[in-house]
Simulated assay, not measured.
Amino acid sequence: MTTYSLAPGWPRVLAALGLDPEAVARHARLPADLQRYPGARIGAEDFFALWEAAEALYQGPDLAVAIASAVSADHFEAAVFAGLASRDLAQAAERIALYKRLIYPVTLDVRTDTGLRIALRPRAPFTPPAVLERFELLFWVAFARLATRARIRPVRITVPNPPDDQTAVADFLDGAVLAQGRAAVVFSPSDMHRPFDTDVHAGMWEHLESDLRWRLHDLEQSATWADRTQEALLTCLPAGRRTLAEVALQLATSPRTLQRRLEAEGTSFQEVLAQTRERLARAYLRRSTLSSTEIAFLIGYGELTSFHRALRQWTGETPRSLRSV
């Protein structure tokens, strides 16, 4: 399973906003001391649950704006800090998009044909909460201002579900507001090529690039076949594909080879399928308003009774009790 580590500055940012990091973790139904361990890693659904918990506990008008306003070089991971060593925003976006998947469960699509457009592409079926989408886009505005030392204003920002009250957003964006659409931010051609004015030496990029390339290589090489199978199932199951042959095709291997590799790791396709179904069921019940019938269909059960029976076997609980946790 692909996992992610929280940014080292996450607890400090929460504390600066009047939030107790341990209370946020508990609200997200995660270990309270999770953020005390820098090496701790969590799945995409738990990563998103932390943001939802922080928003639920935050007393201010908009958590996304508050965190974006606190952006500084001190809070950046290496993948983002490397962007400060770029010549301009266009180059920084390309670099960060490549390496940010080490720390963030959403893919960044970057286009530079008519200005700079940075769009979020969720890694289905775990979609980021609205507060995280807003922050990610506002982050780019804060990053651009930090790197250029200019009060850059984006051409437009769109999100699937703009908040009703955009007072805080408008203050941050100097009067602009969020429009409805795919989560994306667009900068003008002049702003995307505005030279960076930072204290980060360009030569630092060579040092950081080597480290980041090794980390990407390790991430790709360390994935077990059980991990790869689960990641494939996360895409296949909602699309109605759940057989060994269909998943093997997704992984560009044969059914016999996939089964043999899983057996060598002490598991089987059916075991990984059950684990993935349970993971998806928990996520859908916790983070969506989908009916039990819809969830059963999305994780590959043709009958609701079969889903209820499997859920009881996995968790000992019913869909209603899991939703109310």
Rank of each mutant, 00 (worst) to 15 (best):
G266A: 12
V200S: 12
I295R: 12
D218E: 15
E209R: 15
L208D: 03
W214I: 14
R241N: 08
L237A: 07
L262S: 08
A310Y: 05
A274N: 06
F307G: 06
L280R: 04
G302K: 12
E231G: 01
G240T: 05
Q259E: 13
A245P: 01
P255T: 06
R286G: 04
S188I: 02
V200T: 14
V185H: 07
T267E: 04
F297G: 02
E263C: 02
L273I: 08
R182P: 06
E294C: 01
R182I: 13
R194Q: 12
E265K: 02
T293M: 04
T293E: 15
T253C: 12
A283S: 14
H308S: 13
H201D: 13
A223T: 02
I295Q: 09
M204E: 11
V247F: 03
L311G: 10
Q221G: 02
A202M: 07
F196S: 06
V272M: 11
S188N: 03
Y284T: 11
S306I: 01
T253P: 03
V185I: 15
R286P: 01
F307H: 08
I299Q: 12
E278P: 06
H193I: 02
V185R: 05
M192I: 08
L244T: 15
E265I: 04
G300H: 10
F269A: 04
A310H: 08
L298A: 07
S288W: 03
L262G: 09
R256C: 03
A274W: 07
W225F: 13
R256M: 12
V247I: 09
L219K: 14
G300D: 07
E294W: 00
P238G: 01
L219H: 14
C236T: 01
